[in-house]
Structures are given as C-alpha cells and as structure tokens.
Design a protein around this nucleic acid. Structure first.
Lengths: 232, 232
DNA sequence: ACACGTCTGGAACGTCGTTCCAAACTTGGC
DNA sequence: GCCAAGTTTGGAACGACGTTCCAGACGTGT
C-alpha cells in the first residue's frame, strides 16, 4: 500500500488551498455568512483548525478567495442565450445579470464585494468585463475609468442589497406576504412626512427584483448614450 | 439631596436607549466597525454589559439604531449652498452628496446600509427624500418605485464601496501613493487578458471619489431625462 | 536507516455576544 | 414616612469564535 493510499485512508484527500476554498464556499452556501467557522470548516474537511492555517492566512483571506472564485466562475460562464453578434449594451446586461444571479445564489458574496475594499484579483476581472463594452459604446477615453467604475459600483451595490433583502426571509417564507407586510407599514406612515412613500408602497407588492435591477442597468446605459451619442 | 442627584453622582447620567446609541456612534467612529464591543461600550458608559441589554435587544439592533440616527441627521441637515429654487436634479444631487459625506464620515454606516436588509425606519426616509424629486422630474407614476429604488441603491452601494476603500488605508497613509500602487499592479497584468484594465489604470491615479460618485448620479439623471423627456 | 523540511490536528488562550442574578434603586399604597 | 412590588443596574459566568502553539506524523534526499 503506497503512502498516498494510506493517507487517503485516513482522510479522503490531501489538504490544499483549493480544497479549503471549495469547502468554505459549501459551508457559506448552506450555513450562511455567520456559519463559516474554522471549526465547522475543520469538521467538513475532517481535520483540525490548525491545519487550515497552514494554507490560509486568516478568515479574511479565506472569504476573499471564496468571493473571487465565485466571481470568476460567474464571469467565465458566458451566457449562451445572447444573440450571435451582441451589442455592447447586450453584453453589459449579460455581465450584470451573471453577477446578479451569482450574488443571489451566494448572498455572502454581495456583502464581501460591497463591504470590503476592492480586491486585487476580483476588481480587474469586473473592470475588464464591463470596461470593454463601455469602450465599445463610444465613451471618450478620458471617461473610461469613471463610467466603468460607476457601472460596476451600481451592479455590485444593487445586487448586494437585493441579496441582503432576500436573506431576511428564509427560503420557506412567502415573498408576497413579506412584501405585503412592508407595504402595509409604509402605507401607514404619517401623510405629512411620507406622502411619496405611502403612494409608492403599493408598487412594491408585486415587483420583481431582477427586473428592477435590469431597469437600473438600462437607465445607466440610456444615460451613457444620451451623453455620448453613437457616431453612426 | 434628591435621589436623581445621588444617582448623578454615581454616574454622570441615567442610562437610556438614546445615550447608548450616541455612545455606540462615538465608539464606532473612533474605533471602527470592529471596535464596537459591549465591553468597550460599557466602559464608555461607566456601567456593565448587562445594563445595556435592558435598553437594547442585541448588537444588531444597536447597529441599526446607530445607522438610522446618522442617516436621519444627514437628511435633516439641508445643505444651505443650493440655489434659492433648486431643480429636482439639484435636490437629488444634494441628497446624494449628503449621504455620501455621512457615509464617508462614518464608514460603518455604509456596511450596515448595503449589507443588511432595508430597515423599517431608515428606508422610508431615503425613499421619500429622493422619490419626491423623481416624481418632480416627470417620471410616470408607474415607474416611481423602480426608478427611486434604483437611484437609492446606486447611492448607497457606491457610497459604501467608497467608504470601504477609504478605510483600508489609515488616516495617516498617503492616498496618492496607494492609488499609484494599485495602478502599478493593474498595469502589470497580462496584456492578453486585461487590455482595458491596463490602459485604465493610469486614470485611477488622480481621481476624486466624490466627483466620480457625482458623475454616476448625473449619468443616472441623464438616463431618466433621456427616457422621459420633460414636457417643458 | 536516518535526519530534515513539510504538513497535520488537537489543545489552549484571549475575546466576543449574550445570559443570569443578586443587589441597588424607584415607585405607589398605607 | 415606610414597606412591598417593580424597575434598572452591573459584575460574573457560559459557550463559541479566531487564532496560536506545538508535538508528532508524513515525505524526501542522502
């Protein structure tokens, strides 16, 4: 019996940074943001907490690595449903939706991306994916950084807030009931101080988060084309 | 000597939810997000941790109350520098800047606002302040909720990310040096994979976060007027 | 076979959020 | 003006966390 085989008998496989990050993603997805513990992760990997620290510096680095893995996977999976020769706008919508869905599936990614500083590996990925389309839309070179940054900030911020909202009600709770409760609270506000919120409360009842997110992206794109009309 | 006076001798003043929230804001501002501890707060208030729990349910509620207090103060302080009869766009810019500056001064507010779910008290404040201007801009009634939500999401998301970025470098560190370091990393990326990010790295060097944030707001407003032109 | 660097994992430390409870204080009825 | 009931206080204690430490198991070159 080879040494590897004997070791495999002790534990399914050798520890590695990649295996740890994968396990961390699994724990985060099932137990939520607060569920990621070095003890829980140890159990998941059939080892002790100390062993993990040989491959990962601390919890922050682990969270960052997990976030980067999810973002990279989301951006790499090119949606096959786009047109054969998509416009820059269509491409931006596709990137935005890919991120939205990824954050919706892994809500802890949203917190990490919007709360922590821009990471060395993740930020260039996002900037590159959206920036190329900004460039293709005819935005003058001097504005590339500003426009792209703003777009990425909206995408991450809106997706993070949606994920946070979706998380307060468990997977079992009824979304319509929840929205109705909030709308009722809004409609009961003081008419003097909250005339707008009262009226708008009813519009919240049936709304779709994904559509609203896409509407925001479209509003942004409309602003870009209004400011820098295509030469055509 | 009255009982109140004797109590005042023991501790400067009686405990109350408001005093606790104020102390929490002070601790958060000086020690940062991780510095808010029930023990540190106890010391600040010259009491024990148990006493605080009589007025506040848990740490989350305390953070929410502190966030709401800061947002309410920011929105209540009407900026005096606006024109005598400001346009809806100017009003939105003022609200957005007030929130940006508040989050810049209290970075922990950004994390709280974008990471946690919309709070019962804070969200109506924000919706009302921006929604009235959206209505005044001539957006059709059916789109009020969507447009206002998107606008608020951008404002909160962008401000939170700026605050997070500003926090990684301490108050003493040099911002230009930091930006230069990041730009250098970007410019050293693989030309095959990151052509856009490499080019755009230099634009990051001198950029101003506040201006970039305002440019995003303006882009949004441009999108709104492009989609629903004013009847004039 | 032996020694050395790599990797493991259980024990232990300090700190956190939170709970508990005895004592101090306030209040209302006599 | 006093005493019982209720309110508020704050120190001690509990369990869980992130992290460190280190004795030993493992792999590898001589």
């Amino acid at each position: 019996m080879s040494p590897q085989a004997r070791r495999s008998a002790r534990r399914t496989e050798a520890l590695s940074r990649e295996r740890i990050v994968d396990a961390a993603i699994a724990v985060l997805d099932t137990a939520g943001e607060g569920g990621l513990t070095f003890r829980a992760l140890s159990e998941h990997l059939a080892t002790g907490p100390g062993a993990i620290y040989w491959h990962v510096a601390n919890k922050g680095e682990l969270l960052g690595a997990a976030t980067d893995a999810v973002v990279a996977a989301a951006l790499a999976a090119t949606p096959p449903r786009t047109a054969p020769d998509p416009s820059p706008q269509e491409r931006i919508r596709a990137v935005a939706l890919a991120l939205f869905d990824a954050i919706d599936a892994h809500p802890w990614v949203g917190v990490q991306l919007s709360a922590s500083a821009w990471q060395v590996t993740t930020t260039p990925r996002l900037l590159e994916s959206t920036g190329r389309q900004v460039r293709a839309m005819g935005v003058p070179r001097a504005e590339w950084f500003t426009v792209t940054s703003v777009l990425v900030q909206y995408i991450l911020g809106a997706a993070a807030q949606n994920a946070a909202n979706a998380q307060v009600l468990g997977p079992d709770a009824d979304r319509d009931t929840y929205l109705d409760d909030v709308a009722r609270v809004w409609e009961a506000l003081d008419p003097e101080d909250y005339p707008f919120t009262r009226v708008v409360g009813d519009q919240m009842r049936g709304h779709d988060d994904r559509e609203q997110f896409l509407a925001g992206v479209d509003l942004f794109l409309a602003g870009i084309t209004a400011r820098w009309p295509p030469a055509s």
